[in-house]
Design a protein around this nucleic acid. Sequence first.
DNA 1: GCTTAATATACCTTGACACGTATATGCTCT
DNA 2: AGAGCATATACGTGTCAAGGTATATTAAGC
Lengths: 114, 114
Amino acid sequence: MESVFEIIAEPNRRAILSLLVSSQQSVGEIERQLRMPQPTVSKHLRVLREAGFVESTVDAQRRLYRLKPEPLQEVEAWLAPFRRFWSARVDALERHLDRMDQSTLTKRKTTRRR
Amino acid sequence: MESVFEIIAEPNRRAILSLLVSSQQSVGEIERQLRMPQPTVSKHLRVLREAGFVESTVDAQRRLYRLKPEPLQEVEAWLAPFRRFWSARVDALERHLDRMDQSTLTKRKTTRRR
DNA sequence: GCTTAATATACCTTGACACGTATATGCTCT
DNA sequence: AGAGCATATACGTGTCAAGGTATATTAAGC
């Protein structure tokens, strides 16, 4: 389980991460919201913690888990070069469509991205 | 091999994708540049093609592979909510640093993101 | 101090997938 | 048509990680 990509390949872990975007959560809260057995949650949290995706603080018997940004920023960084690529493709497609059919130009313009 | 995340979990596949950012490549070119056995390249390309990451066109005996944007945009989309989260964290850190040490303010400001 | 709640860990089993080696398919050129 | 190159597929094997069940740890409250 070396790379950040292997970590987020697991659906349950992605679910946990998405859940933590809103706010920190205890193990029990995660368990209930995602309907997964407690050992499963704990094991995935361990993987996420060791990979730096989350950190935990102690609150009585509970442990509160919250996100840490670095690993996902690593994914973001890997993705960056591709972003240039696909926005170029979208632009090219739009230019192509503009030439093909002027009648739908207005409609498309309103929903154009970037 | 359902999700796009499982696809990009494999390091060789990520290498192939990164290689294709610059331009389309034949199987042999990929094989040589990444120093991996030909069946390995072909098998990974098959996975990438079936998942929509790449498409191929025939050029005599060669097959030229090029990127398709959609699956990686899916990753991008999943990542989006987290981006809000970590830029907030960075801002908080910067404010904190601004208070701590005014002497380095100028230098940091020049390299600040977003 | 004992019981209960919250979380972590141990152990086992199963399945998936990446790799290597060998072979098949397909195209080109003479 | 046959030889040679480029790419794809088949098959057998080993590894590793996820899940389930059971149990251990730690803290709280009476």
